[in-house]
Each structure stands twice: as structure tokens, then as C-alpha cells.
Computed example of a mutant assay.
Amino acid sequence: MEYVEVFMASPWIYLVVFGIAFLDGFFPVVPGETTVIAAGASAAAIGVPNIGIVIAAAAIGAFCGDHVSYAIGRFAFGPIAKRLKPGTKKKKAFDWAHDALIKRGGIVLVVARYIPGGRTAITITCGAVGYPIRKFMFFDAIAAISWGVYSGLIGYFAGWVFQGRPLLALALGFAVAMTCAGAVELVRYILERRAKAAETTESESTAEPVNSGKQ
């Protein structure tokens, strides 16, 4: 435990938070939330590191990492997607993703940032379908900053509850983060189902006059 406290008091902790948040943007195996939550819990439990700098490092790292993911999608998957044959399942899926991002890109980007693994899939897709980079930067900045604040404060709250017991603080913070991520995913699923149902109803209503005219 003494070594943990020494590390948390070191300026290197900010570089670690930045680096892991950065890698998490395009390499989802890296535990981005866990690192930020741990630093936040330590900030409240033992007084170091500085929670404000932790949040800033996490947000900047996430923002930069997401842009690497966007670049991978644009330059690696974009050319492949453009060569897809019309009418194929892959082409239809590509067109659906493109339309969804054009219509609801900002909301999708912000929500996906709170879903481990989902954030990478969305940012890569944004690059592959050619989502405008200025819009991407704007909404990704909102997503990264809000994610940094959310993860840091969850850890800080847990550390405040369990002052002097950083391991319990980390466990509580991680549990709360997973619960919130699950709630976000559930809401996203419900909204997606409703949107698909609305599109089906709309397509059926526009198809009825055409059918009746042919008869």
C-alpha cells in the first residue's frame, strides 16, 4: 500500500492517466475508466493526486485517442468500404451506419464514450463513413470532457466515502462505473428499438397508398 501511495503522489501518475486514456481510445483492452477512477479515489482517500489534473489528463488523452481511432477508420477501412458492391449486406450495413451517424452522430458519439468497446467501434465507423471531422472534433470534445469528469468524480466520491481505505474506494468506484455504463447501454438499446419501430411504421404508412393505387 505504501508503494501505491508513493506512486499516486508522483507526477508520473498524470502521464499514466493520459497514456491509458489515450490507448483506450483505439485499443479497448486497456482499462481507461479503471485508471481514472483509481486516481480519483486516491485523490479523496489520501489527498493525492490532484483531481483536477487527473480529469484534464483523462479528457485530453481520450480526445487524442479517439482521433487515432477515427484516422484508422478513415484511412484503413474507408477505402475498403467505398469498394463494396451495391445491394450486398455489407454495403447496406455501411449505408445504414452512414445515415445513422449523419442523423444522430453527435448523440451517438457522446453516448458511446461511456460504453467500453463501443466507443472504439463508433469512432472507427465515423472515420470509415467520412463523418465530418469538424463535427467529430466538437462532439468528441464534449464526450471526452464529460467522460473525464464522470470517471474522476466517481472515484473521488468513492474515495471520500472510504477515506483511508483506497482499495475499498476503488472497488466501489468501479462498481458504480459499471452500473452507470450498463444503464447507458440499456437506454441506448431502448431508444434504438423505438427508432427502428418508428421507421418501420413510417415505411408501411408510405407504402399503403402506392399499393392501393396499383390495385
Rank of each mutant, 00 (worst) to 15 (best):
Y3P: 02
F18R: 03
V54S: 02
F22P: 02
L23V: 01
L23M: 09
Y150M: 15
S151P: 03
V29E: 14
L170W: 06
E5I: 06
S69T: 01
I13Y: 00
G32D: 04
A93T: 05
P31M: 06
G155T: 07
I145Y: 10
F27K: 04
A195C: 07
A38I: 05
V176T: 14
C180K: 03
A141C: 08
S151T: 01
V16H: 02
V29F: 06
K82Y: 03
G213A: 12
F18L: 13
V187R: 11
Q215W: 09
V4G: 02
G118Q: 09
H98C: 04
R188Y: 14
D66Q: 01
S212Y: 08
V129S: 00
K196T: 07
F7L: 15
A144E: 12
A141E: 00
G65I: 00
F27H: 02
D99W: 04
L172Q: 07
Y156A: 09
D66V: 05
K91N: 13
W147S: 09
F174Y: 12
V4F: 14
E185N: 14
I51M: 13
T88K: 11
H67Q: 12
H67D: 02
S146H: 05
A169H: 09
A38H: 01
G19A: 11
V17I: 15
I102C: 02
I13R: 07
T125Y: 11
I115M: 05
S69A: 15
P49W: 06
T35D: 01
P209W: 10
G78Y: 05
S42E: 11
I37E: 12
T88L: 08
K103I: 11
G52E: 04
R104F: 12
V36E: 00
F138M: 13
I20F: 00
G155L: 06
P209G: 13
A59T: 00
P209S: 04
L168A: 10
V68M: 11
E5F: 09
Y150L: 11
P11Q: 11
L170E: 10
F94M: 02
G19Q: 02
M137K: 00
S212D: 14
N50F: 03
R194F: 00
E208F: 07
P49S: 10
D140T: 13
I122M: 15
V68E: 04
N50Q: 10
Y3G: 06
A171V: 12
I13C: 13
F7D: 07
I115W: 08
A62H: 08
E185F: 15
V111E: 05
K214N: 10
E199S: 07
V108Y: 07
I20H: 00
R194D: 09
H67N: 08
G155A: 11
C126T: 04
Y189D: 07
F75I: 03
V6I: 10
D95H: 06
R193E: 14
G173Y: 11
A175I: 08
F157I: 15
I190S: 04
A181P: 03
H67M: 01
G164Q: 15
C126E: 05
E208W: 13
E208D: 06
A112D: 06
A100E: 09
L84R: 07
G130P: 12
L84D: 03
M178N: 13
E2Y: 04
G61S: 00
G152V: 01
V4H: 06
Y3S: 15
P11F: 11
T120P: 11
I13G: 00
A45Q: 05
